[in-house]
Simulated scan of single mutants.
Amino acid sequence: MDNKTDFETFFAQAPQLNPNVPKITGVIFGYRVEEIENQRMQKIRYLDQLVEELPRRKAMEKMLRK
């Protein structure tokens, strides 16, 4: 936040996404995460989905379908 990094830079500098991230499914803001065609937007929605699940105290392993 302090660096004012945008999503494009954030994902470009991220080491790599978890290989199970495509297993994240569901609807976020009215869109099915697995059907979003724009890859950057899909990555953003994956993060949204994970953040939405955190208050439900789901284990990260369950969210990533390990």
Rank of each mutant, 00 (worst) to 15 (best):
R40N: 11
E53P: 00
E37L: 08
R45T: 06
G30A: 11
N38S: 08
N20F: 05
F10V: 07
E34Y: 05
M1N: 14
V51N: 04
I36H: 03
D6V: 13
T9A: 10
L47S: 03
Q49L: 05
R57S: 11
M63K: 08
D2S: 15
Y31S: 06
T25L: 05
R32L: 08
E34M: 05
D2C: 10
N38V: 12
R45M: 14
E8S: 13
E34W: 06
E37R: 11
L47K: 02
G26W: 06
E52G: 03
N38K: 15
D6R: 03
I24E: 00
P55F: 03
R45C: 10
I36F: 06
K23E: 04
V21N: 05
G26I: 00
P15C: 05
T5G: 01
M63F: 04
Y46M: 04
R56S: 10
M41K: 05
L64Y: 08
V51K: 02
R32K: 15
D48G: 10
V51T: 07
N18I: 00
R65Q: 15
Q42N: 06
R40Y: 08
N20Q: 10
K43I: 02
G30V: 10
F7I: 01
Q39S: 08
F10S: 02
V27C: 05
V27G: 01
V27Q: 07
M63C: 13
R32F: 07
P15S: 12
E35H: 09
P22R: 02
R56H: 14
T5L: 11
I44D: 00
K58V: 09
Q16A: 12
G26K: 07
N38G: 03
M60I: 15
K43N: 12
V27P: 00
E8F: 11
Y46H: 10
P19R: 06
V33M: 05
K66W: 11
M63H: 03
R65C: 11
L54I: 15
R56E: 13
R57T: 06
L47H: 05
N18A: 07
R32Q: 12
R65S: 14
V21K: 05
E8P: 01
Q16R: 14
R40F: 07
A14T: 14
Y31T: 00
M1A: 15
R40P: 02
